[in-house]
Design a protein around this nucleic acid. Structure first.
Lengths: 216, 216
DNA sequence: CTCCTAATGAACGAACCGGTCCGTCCACCC
DNA sequence: GGGTGGACGGACCGGTTCGTTCATTAGGAG
């Protein structure tokens, strides 16, 4: 008489289970930090048990490492998509800065995980054998832009691409990572939608002003 | 025959005990984070016992709050000392940026505590009644500089002092807070002494380029 | 000198938490 | 249809960790 409850087909699916654990763990670690996150809590928020975490990842640290590497992989994949070869150098640089800004806004978990990993002196990242995690593709794109800008006489010729990358990163990371203390002290929410466009164009202005300083 | 061991006069001294606990706790919380720090470990590193932590601070959270407020107080005290009224606007701005840079370099514990507090959504700072902790004096100094720069026609007149403060903070905080992941990924130690002067002048150049952009 | 209280120390307790053990279920293959 | 191995669940364990209890001592007030 009563309609069958939606079957939900809870079938055995290793890949699915693994992925679900990682997804939940990413949020938990990003939210609570490594020491603050609880294995029991992560397990409870999945549709499987704690036993599976140890089955697939060996332990809390193994799971955290997987979470960290996964987060970096996703960001790197996004970076690889950016294509600004068709823009003239100044516009390309501004676009790169704005895209970085957008990435950081859209991936708050990533920014928090990086902050957490730094609290731990990046020892997991340093020990990670997955070299795919390293070397931001964004840096190569930036190098190309600066090369073109220098060749066209638009940019200063005494600048290092990594320095410029650091400026952009610092701005975008700070906005995400220090959002809460900044709000507490200055009563300004850096993620207020009305402030967003202002900050977004500001990082573009800032970096363009820096690389073109002293040029016509 | 053997000389008396240095007496060390372990006398009862509430102020001393309190201060010692806070000093040790500051390092432990900065090093391990809130959840990662251990009350027993903090107690063991003082010359008193865990009992005293509960006697003076009520518990782990009370101690952390005191540590956080103390760290902010010390930084604020430093900021209040900076005096750049005698310099012309461009030099004053550069000096302010470099002093901020120096503060962050000399107080790595502070930078880490701020990062940790942000992981916790700044809920302790938000609930802190000590208003002395808030409102960076550096911001008022910066406002004065920008006012003078604008009046002299040297600076852009469409800039907000808080935005400029954020740029300086972002750069200096990033260097300290993201030092380890940056090193792991780009193999560059942002605290290498040989890089220090370069980065120090860079934040000056950057902020000056920004506020004077489009001016002769 | 005596008392009173702030300051202190050692040991204890109970909840928590990472990790493990043992056994079951299911899909697939012969 | 019986065997095999990967996927899985739940109960359990032992060390850890925050917080407390009880007793004691130092030192100043009277």
């Amino acid at each position: 008489m009563t309609a069958e409850p939606a079957p939900t087909e809870r079938v055995r699916d290793a890949g699915r289970t693994r992925a679900e654990i990682i997804e939940v763990a990413t949020h938990e670690f990003a939210d609570q930090g490594y020491a603050g996150a609880r294995v029991d809590e992560i397990a409870a928020k999945t549709r499987t048990t704690k036993r599976m975490i140890y089955y697939y990842f060996g332990g809390k640290e193994g799971l955290y490492l997987e979470v960290l590497e996964g987060a970096y992989r996703r960001i790197r994949a996004l970076e690889q998509e950016l294509d600004v070869e068709h823009l003239e150098p100044v516009a390309a640089l501004r676009r790169l800065a704005e895209m970085t800004f957008d990435h950081h806004e859209q991936h708050p978990d990533f920014v928090r995980l990086v902050a957490i990993e730094n609290i731990h002196y990046a020892k997991h990242l340093a020990g990670s054998s997955s070299r795919e995690v390293l070397a931001a593709p964004a840096l190569e794109v930036l190098s190309r832009i600066m090369e073109r800008g220098r060749a066209a006489g638009l940019f200063r010729d005494d600048l290092d691409a990594l320095d410029v990358h650091m400026i952009i990163s610092a701005f975008c990371v700070f906005r995400g990572a220090n959002r809460y203390t900044f709000q507490a002290i200055f009563d300004r929410d850096l993620f207020d939608p009305r402030l967003r466009d202002h900050l977004r164009s500001m990082i573009g202005d800032l970096v363009v002003a820096h690389v073109t300083a002293g040029r016509p």
